[in-house]
C-alpha cells in the first residue's frame, strides 16, 4: 500500500511538472489527466475510494474535457504553441519559481514538523459513511452547492452567450475582422 502511495505521488508530481512546462496546451492537458489519475490513486491508498472515482470522473473527465472544448472553440494552432514558447522564457519563470520554492520550503518544514499524535493504522472511510454525513449534517451544504452551481450556470450562460444579436455595429465589424 505504501509503495503504491509513493509511486502514485511521484507520478503526480512529475506529471504536474510536465503540465506546467508544456508549450502545447493539449499535451499539457493530457499530463493533467495523468496527474489527476495519480492523485486518484493516492486517494485510494488513503482509504477514500469514492473520492478517487469522483476525481477521475469530474476532474479528469468533465473539467478537462470542458477545457479541451474551449481550446477547440478558440481554434488553437501551431502559432500559439510557438507563442507559448516565447512567453515561457527562463527570465519569466525563474523569479516566481524561486519565490514559490521559498514558500514550498517553508510549507514542507511545517508539514514535516507536524507530529500527529495518532499512531493507529489507517482506517478506510467508505462511501456509505460519506453519504450518510453528506445527507445528514451537511444537507444544507449540499443545497448551498446547488445554489453555487446555479450561480455558476447563470453566470456562464450570461457570459458565454455568443453574440447572435449583438447590436453594436462596431463590435460586429470587429468580430467579422477576426
Amino acid at each position: 500500500m505504501e509503495l503504491t502511495f509513493y509511486i502514485a505521488a511521484a507520478v503526480a508530481i512529475l506529471s504536474t511538472i510536465m503540465v506546467i512546462t508544456r508549450y502545447n496546451m493539449i499535451h499539457a492537458l493530457l499530463y493533467l489527466v495523468v496527474s489527476f489519475m495519480a492523485v486518484a490513486v493516492v486517494f485510494f491508498t488513503l482509504g477514500a475510494p469514492f473520492m478517487a472515482a469522483l476525481e477521475i470522473i469530474i476532474y479528469a473527465g468533465a473539467i478537462v474535457v470542458l477545457i479541451i472544448f474551449v481550446i477547440m472553440m478558440l481554434n488553437m494552432i501551431q502559432e500559439d504553441v510557438q507563442r507559448e514558447k516565447e512567453w515561457l522564457k527562463p527570465s519569466v519563470w525563474v523569479g516566481p519559481a524561486l519565490l514559490s520554492a521559498v514558500l514550498l520550503a517553508e510549507l514542507a518544514y511545517i508539514l514535516l514538523g507536524a507530529n500527529p499524535s495518532q499512531t493507529e493504522a489507517l482506517v478506510a472511510v467508505d462511501a456509505k459513511l460519506v453519504g450518510l454525513a453528506l445527507f445528514g449534517p451537511y444537507l444544507l451544504g449540499v443545497q448551498l452547492c446547488g445554489i453555487l452551481l446555479m450561480a455558476g450556470i447563470v453566470g456562464a450562460y450570461h457570459l458565454g452567450r455568443q453574440k447572435k444579436k449583438v447590436i453594436h455595429r462596431f463590435l460586429q465589424e470587429r468580430s467579422a475582422a477576426a
Binding site: 451544504g141 448551498l144 450561480a151
Partner: peptide, 17 residues
Amino acid sequence: ASLFLGLEVLSVALYAL
C-alpha cells in the same frame, strides 16, 4: 464547509456580475 460554500456562492456570482 458553510464558510467555504458561502464564500464561493458570493465569488462565483461576483465573477459574472
